[in-house]
Amino acid sequence: MDQKAKAEASTPPDERVTDRAARSAHETIDRVAEHARSTEDRLRDSASHAGERARAAAEQVRERGHEYGDDIQRFVAARPLAALGIAFAAGWLISRLGRR
Rank of each mutant, 00 (worst) to 15 (best):
Ala78Trp: 00
Ser24Trp: 01
Arg96Leu: 12
Arg20Ala: 14
His35Glu: 14
Glu34Asp: 07
Glu15Phe: 06
Leu93Gly: 06
Arg37Phe: 05
Leu93Lys: 13
Gln3Trp: 12
Gly51Lys: 15
Ala82His: 12
Glu15Tyr: 07
Ala58Arg: 13
Arg37Asn: 07
Ala25Tyr: 05
Glu59Phe: 03
Ala77Asp: 10
Arg20Glu: 13
Met1Leu: 15
Arg42Gln: 09
Asp70Arg: 04
Ala90His: 12
Ala77Cys: 04
Gly91His: 14
Ala89Asp: 03
Arg79Asn: 14
Gln3Asn: 12
Tyr68Leu: 15
Asp71Phe: 13
Leu43Arg: 06
Ala36Trp: 02
Thr11Asn: 08
Ala25Arg: 11
Tyr68Gly: 00
Ala22Asn: 09
His35Tyr: 08
Pro13Asn: 08
Ile86Asp: 05
Arg79Cys: 07
His66Tyr: 01
Arg99Ile: 12
Arg100Ile: 03
Gly51His: 10
Met1Pro: 09
Lys4Leu: 15
Ala22Pro: 01
Ser48Gly: 00
Phe88Ser: 08
Ala25Gly: 05
Gly51Phe: 08
Pro13Thr: 07
His26Ser: 06
Arg20Trp: 11
Gly51Cys: 09
Asp41Gly: 10
Asp14Glu: 15
Gly69Gln: 06
Arg37Gly: 01
Ala47Pro: 00
Leu81His: 10
Glu15Gly: 01
Arg31Val: 06
Val32Tyr: 07
Ala58Ser: 07
Asp70Met: 02
Ser24Cys: 03
Ala57Lys: 03
Arg62Asn: 11
Leu81Glu: 14
Ser24Met: 05
Gly69Phe: 03
Arg74Trp: 02
Ala89Ile: 03
Ser24Phe: 01
Glu63Gly: 03
Ile29Asn: 13
His26Asp: 05
Thr39Pro: 00
Val76Tyr: 01
Ala83Gln: 02
His66Glu: 02
His35Ser: 12
Gln60Asp: 09
Gly98Cys: 15
Arg64Lys: 13
Arg53Val: 04
Leu93His: 09
Val76His: 02
Phe75Leu: 11
Lys4Asn: 07
Ala5Met: 06
Arg55Phe: 03
Ala57His: 00
Ser46Leu: 10
Ala25Ser: 10
Arg96Trp: 06
His35Trp: 11
Glu63Asp: 09
Phe75Lys: 05
Ile86His: 04
Arg20Gln: 13
Thr18Met: 08
Arg74Gly: 00
Ile29Trp: 11
Gln73Leu: 15
Gln3Leu: 15
Trp92Thr: 11
Ala7Arg: 15
Ala25His: 06
Leu84Asp: 04
Ala54Val: 01
Val76Met: 03
Arg96Lys: 15
Ala90Ile: 11
